[in-house]
Amino acid sequence: MIAYILRRLGMILLTLLAASIIIFSVTQLLPGDVAQVILGQFATPEAVANLRAELGLDRPIVVQYFDWLIRFIQGDWGTSMVSRMEVRPMVMARLRNSLMLASVAILMYVPLGILLGVISAIKEDGMADQLISGISMAFAGLPEFVTGLLLIGLLAVSFDFLPANSSIEPDTPFREAFQYLILPAITVSLTSLGYISRMTRSSTIDVLRSDYTRAADMKGLPRWQVLTKHVLRNSLLPTVTVVALGIGWLIGGLIVTESVFGYPGIGRLLVYSIQRRDVISIQAISMVIVTIYSFSNLIADILYGILNPRIRLGG
């Protein structure tokens, strides 16, 4: 098991290395010169040249990349070109907010998605299934800015039920922030909910049709016991991986949703940095997001390995 984890870890580190190359080179495509951007249009050529040397921009690109990567790993993420502040504390504060939002959302859509998926599967092709499948497919297809704004219109503006704007202070404690999290979390959830429920539905249907489920039925076990002991134990196994893969989706959703609600998370910071062409921040934020995504997949793989006797015990 440990060897398996180490091997997965090795793969992920390699992937992250390659992803960092992509992120670094893409952000280097930025037209114009970072030093020029920082100093503004009216800086003297000498001042620009000095800053270039100071920032190490006159070195070969490969050297710059490794320098950047090593600094990033060491925790030196540089200084924002716009706000002139240390990038790391800023990103970390925003990351905390995003994780808060993501956690609330995951706690909403994962159990609900699984529940709906299982109901759908049990009532395969019945009314309940068609309804759940149809609605969840519709929500899965709707961009977050559409659902988010509709929710604001419906719940916040019409009924004055929840705050429409979530632009709280970045360091608000969870207890106080909670009410501002609800609408954004619902928005993010709706998209992922459909995904989880569809995947759960299809894996549960596969298991329901399996010989061993029939065999369990023929054993005369109560139906709920067949479902919990025999069906769900197997059909929810792939859901572990599905949830992790859905994190990539969730991240995209967060970026949009945070912009819709003005919520001070890492996604909004990214949008802001891209608008301001703040390369240093963009690089750091992208790396943080990619790292989190990769590690959530690692955790899912490990969980899957622990839960699946075929992997745990070998073939």
């Binding site: 061993y212 025999h230 197997n234």
Partner: peptide, 8 residues
């Protein structure tokens, strides 16, 4: 091989 639950 199919009629016995693989994870019990």
């Amino acid at each position: 091989s199919k009629a016995i639950n693989p994870s019990i």
